[in-house]
Simulated scan of single mutants.
Amino acid sequence: MKTIAVSCGDINGIGLEILLKAHPLIASKVNLIYCVHFELLEQASELLQIPLPSDLTPSQCYAPSSPPPPILAGQITQESGRYSFESFILGCKLCENHQAQMLCTLPIHKQAWNLAGIPYLGHTQALSDRYKTEAIMMLGCEKMFVALFSDHIPLSKVSSLIQSKRIYDFLMRLYHLFPQEKYCILGVNPHCGDGGIIGEEDQEIQKAISQANQALQKCIFYGPYPSDCAFIPSKRKEFRVWVAMYHDVGLAPLKALYFDESINVSLGLPILRSSVDHGVAFDIAYQGKAQIESYLNAISFLK
């Protein structure tokens, strides 16, 4: 069986609830190393009134270097931010040392990381810096995956990145990392610019698509398609993977359709990492309401 390291995420959110609920469903299928103090799982079990699984033992827990902070349900704290980052880095090290083959991350809170002095906007940026290569952020499920040409940057900076060489390089990397028969490439302006009347960025996208197809000697990349009609039912029958030029234009339809199912995957790194595609859900933390389907899919993608 594969060994998967699981970082605990922000302990004030729903991460530990998901971990405890899902453990009985996956423990017989993969070897799990939880990057968390066992006593935190015991506390979460008590708070949630969820029995601690009998086969979940201290030997499966590798503790971060910091002492466990108190669980403060739904609160943004420096301590929980620091602890979630150390749990994540421990998971990376376990993969690097070949104690685990893959890493699954539970949700962190970006503001808590900021309070703790962590200089990253999230897991993907931290992974790209650690491994000195730009990870491709891809989210989705079996029915639909969306790869992001740009992810956690201000919208005001997107246009300057829309250059044919950059997009060509991205498309070729994506094809080799996640090969498909065809990809739907989204435009960036309304109506894909209407031939330059509403912006010229889409012409750069078209040039990159043509160059990539020429390099592959077959038509793999299609578009650019206007984003407002790229996810209509007929397109969802035709395509399985979309490429969005920026974050929300691709993820809004994905989450509207498959919020509970979708996962987050980092492509192009020395380690394989997947994650749930949702946040810490502080509003329902320790109320027993957390759904586990995204986490189960993230584990399934890895194994």
Rank of each mutant, 00 (worst) to 15 (best):
W242M: 11
F88V: 13
V249Q: 15
I232Y: 10
Y62D: 07
H123L: 09
P224M: 09
Q291T: 10
S227V: 00
H123V: 00
P233I: 15
F301Y: 12
V158G: 01
D194V: 07
P67A: 14
E181H: 12
L103T: 11
L25S: 12
L186A: 00
Y183P: 04
C219R: 15
S66D: 04
D277I: 05
F239T: 04
C229Q: 13
I153L: 12
A126R: 06
K165S: 11
C141G: 06
S294Y: 11
L47K: 15
K143P: 05
A230R: 14
S45V: 01
P270S: 03
I4K: 06
K182P: 02
W242G: 08
S227E: 04
G15A: 04
A22V: 02
Q287W: 09
T57E: 01
D277M: 06
A244Y: 02
Q211G: 00
K207Q: 07
G91W: 00
N114R: 15
N97M: 13
A208V: 01
P58K: 06
D260W: 09
L272N: 15
K235W: 11
P190V: 13
Y62M: 10
I33G: 04
D151N: 13
T133P: 03
L19V: 14
P24E: 06
C192D: 06
P190D: 06
I167N: 10
E79K: 10
K29N: 05
P64A: 15
L32V: 11
P64Y: 01
D283K: 08
M1Q: 03
L216R: 03
Q101W: 01
E238Y: 04
L171Q: 04
T57S: 05
Q75I: 14
N97H: 13
I14K: 10
Q291D: 13
P224E: 01
S65E: 12
Y83H: 09
M144D: 01
I205Y: 05
N114I: 14
A63M: 04
T105W: 05
K2R: 14
D129T: 13
S266E: 12
V276L: 02
D10V: 03
G195D: 08
P154W: 03
L115N: 11
A230K: 14
L257M: 07
C141P: 02
R240N: 15
L302T: 07
Q49I: 06
N97T: 12
L267F: 00
V36A: 08
E46I: 13
F170K: 08
C95H: 01
D283C: 08
I50A: 06
Q163M: 11
G195V: 14
T105E: 09
K218R: 15
S59Y: 07
S65T: 09
C104P: 01
Q99G: 03
Q78R: 15
Q291H: 11
N97F: 03
F231S: 09
S45Q: 03
I153W: 02
C229D: 09
A116N: 11
A27C: 14
C104H: 03
E86C: 04
P270H: 01
